[in-house]
Measured scan of single mutants.
Amino acid sequence: KRPMNAFMVWSQIERRKIMEQSPDMHNAEISKRLGKRWKLLKDSDKIPFIREAERLRLKHMADYPDYK
């Protein structure tokens, strides 16, 4: 399994928030909203998620050196 990218790290947190506020919302609608919100997010606000994704990528490389 591939490591999460910055969007996936961010969306995992945000998806939980949306599901708590709107438990009846369909997953497809949540995904659309997350995509739009990520695009509107300032680059500076994305930095912590980019760093976490990089950390996960490096850990994945160390844990699975033969992964292609």
Rank of each mutant, 00 (worst) to 15 (best):
I18K: 00
D45C: 02
N27F: 07
L58G: 14
A62F: 08
K42M: 04
S22A: 12
A62E: 11
K36W: 12
L56R: 07
S22M: 07
S11F: 08
V9W: 02
P23F: 00
Y64H: 13
I30M: 07
K39Y: 07
R55L: 06
M25A: 13
I18M: 09
R2C: 12
K46W: 00
R2T: 04
D45G: 04
P23R: 02
M61V: 12
L34D: 00
A53E: 03
Y64A: 11
S11V: 03
N5G: 07
R2K: 10
A6D: 03
R57Y: 04
L34A: 01
A53Q: 00
R16T: 11
R16Y: 05
A6R: 02
K42D: 07
K32D: 13
I30S: 01
A62C: 10
M25C: 07
F49G: 02
E20T: 06
H26W: 07
R55T: 09
R33S: 11
L56Y: 06
I13Y: 04
W38H: 03
A28K: 11
E54M: 04
Y67T: 10
H60W: 10
E29C: 05
Y67D: 14
W10H: 02
M8G: 14
M19V: 11
P65K: 14
G35H: 15
L56W: 03
Q12T: 09
P23N: 03
E52Q: 06
E52W: 03
M19D: 04
D24G: 10
A28E: 11
K32I: 08
S44T: 10
K42I: 03
V9P: 03
D45T: 03
A6M: 00
P3N: 11
A6Q: 03
S31I: 12
D66M: 09
E29F: 01
E54D: 07
N5R: 01
K46I: 03
A6G: 11
R33Q: 15
L41R: 00
K1S: 13
K32F: 07
K1V: 04
I13F: 08
I18S: 02
K36D: 05
R15I: 07
K1R: 06
H60F: 09
N27Y: 09
R55H: 07
R33L: 15
R37V: 09
S44P: 04
N5Q: 03
I30F: 00
L56M: 15
P48H: 06
R2A: 11
L40Q: 13
P23I: 03
D66W: 06
R2V: 11
L40V: 06
W38G: 02
H60K: 14
N27V: 12
N27S: 14
L58M: 12
S31K: 12
R16I: 08
R37G: 14
W38Q: 00
E52R: 06
L56I: 10
E20M: 08
K59T: 09
K36I: 15
D45F: 05
M61F: 07
E54W: 02
M61W: 08
R57Q: 08
M61T: 13
D24F: 10
L40E: 15
D43L: 10
P3S: 10
D66S: 12
Q12H: 11
E54K: 05
M8T: 12
K17A: 01
K1C: 08
Y67M: 12
D43A: 12
Q21P: 01
K46H: 00
P23D: 03
W10I: 00
M8C: 07
V9T: 05
S31D: 15
K17L: 08
N27K: 13
K39H: 04
M19F: 07
Y64L: 13
A28L: 09
S11M: 05
S31R: 10
D66Y: 03
Y64V: 14
Y64K: 15
A28P: 07
M8Y: 12
R15A: 05
D66K: 11
P65T: 12
M4I: 14
N5V: 01
K39N: 09
K59W: 05
Y64P: 13
K42P: 14
K36T: 13
P3C: 07
K1L: 06
W10M: 00
Y64N: 15
K17P: 00
L34S: 03
E20W: 03
D66V: 10
L58E: 15
E20A: 07
L41K: 02
K32H: 10
Q21W: 01
I13T: 08
E54F: 03
K1H: 11
R15M: 09
D45K: 04
M4K: 02
P65V: 11
I30E: 01
I18N: 04
K17V: 06
K39G: 11
P23C: 01
A53K: 00
M4V: 12
F49A: 03
Q21K: 08
K1Q: 01
K59S: 13
R57W: 06
L58D: 12
M4A: 08
R33H: 12
A6T: 01
N5M: 01
L34F: 02
S44Y: 02
K36R: 12
R37P: 01
N5D: 13
W38S: 00
I30D: 01
A6L: 01
E29M: 08
A6P: 11
P3D: 14
P3A: 11
R16C: 08
Y64E: 13
Q12L: 09
A28D: 10
M4H: 03
L41I: 05
I50R: 09
M25N: 02
K1M: 08
L41Y: 01
E29Q: 05
A62H: 09
K39D: 13
P23K: 04
S44N: 08
K59D: 10
K32T: 10
K59L: 14
K59A: 12
R37D: 13
D63Y: 08
D24S: 10
D63G: 10
R57G: 07
E29A: 09
A28Y: 15
K17H: 05
M8V: 09
M4S: 04
D43M: 12
P23S: 04
L56T: 07
K39L: 07
K1D: 14
A62Y: 11
A53P: 00
S44V: 09
D63T: 11
K68M: 08
M8N: 08
S22T: 06
L56Q: 11
V9Y: 03
E54Y: 02
I47R: 08
L56K: 09
L34H: 01
E20F: 03
F49L: 03
M4T: 11
G35N: 13
L40T: 14
K59C: 09
S22V: 07
Q12M: 13
N27G: 11
K39F: 04
H60V: 09
R37N: 15
R2Y: 05
W38T: 02
I50T: 06
R16V: 11
K1T: 05
D45E: 12
D63N: 11
N27W: 13
R55E: 06
K1G: 12
Y64W: 07
M25T: 09
G35P: 04
H26E: 14
V9G: 01
R16K: 14
W38F: 00
P48W: 04
P65I: 06
I18H: 03
